[in-house]
Computed example of a mutant assay.
Amino acid sequence: MHSIEFTLDDASDDAVRADWDALLAAGLPSAGSHRSATNRPHVTVLAATAVPTSLQDEAAARLLPLLPLPVRWGGLVLFGTRRLVLARLVEVDRALTALVHGLQQDAVDVAADPDRAWVPHVTLCRRLDPGQVGTALSVLPLLPEAAPSFTGLRRWDPVARRVTSLGG
């Protein structure tokens, strides 16, 4: 899926990478095991089978003026039923949620149901077995110490396997 993503300030990026490392040290799946230069803690704004240049430009025009944007860490959350995704929620205001929902409505073949609420989060691990949840929760802090902010916007193109900074 093509995506447009917020990136985090340096201290928050470091905090998420510390979570990734803690999961790895505990022998658990971790987003940190993917060592590509394109792998970076982020919050996906939209994911779709295609992101036309016009939508990319619209997203940049609407979101970049907000940066840097202070947000808040939320708790840990699990998505899925058998092979779980463990993520850290990111709390944002209603105005940003409405703006993102509007961008999603304009996307081509949005990956998620376009009528579904945006759940801003940073993925910590994928393919977590339900039996591993307790261990994962025991090695992660309830909340990172650093107060997070969105400081950048980027685009992921899976076909070209390229990340393009849109600014910030």
Rank of each mutant, 00 (worst) to 15 (best):
M1W: 09
H2R: 13
I4K: 01
E5S: 11
T7N: 08
D10N: 07
D10L: 09
A11L: 05
S12A: 13
D13A: 11
V16Q: 12
R17W: 10
A18N: 07
D21M: 14
A26K: 12
G27P: 11
L28I: 06
A31Q: 15
G32H: 02
H34Y: 14
S36T: 13
H42G: 05
H42P: 06
V43G: 01
A47I: 01
A48P: 10
T53M: 12
Q56V: 09
D57I: 04
E58F: 03
A59Q: 04
R62M: 10
R62A: 14
L63Q: 02
L63I: 03
P65C: 13
P65H: 06
L67F: 09
L69C: 04
V71S: 10
W73T: 02
G75V: 04
L78E: 05
L78W: 04
G80S: 06
G80P: 03
L84E: 03
V85D: 06
V85S: 10
L86H: 05
R88V: 08
D93V: 00
L99K: 01
H101T: 03
G102L: 00
L103H: 00
L103P: 01
D106H: 13
D109C: 10
V110R: 11
V110L: 13
A111T: 14
D113Q: 05
D115E: 15
D115V: 03
W118T: 00
V119L: 15
P120N: 08
T123Y: 00
C125E: 08
R127I: 05
P130H: 11
G131T: 14
V133N: 06
G134L: 10
V139C: 03
L140A: 09
L140H: 04
P141L: 03
P144Q: 08
A147H: 08
F150S: 00
F150A: 00
L153I: 03
P158R: 07
R162P: 03
V163C: 13
T164A: 12
L166G: 05
L166W: 07
G167V: 09
G167Q: 07
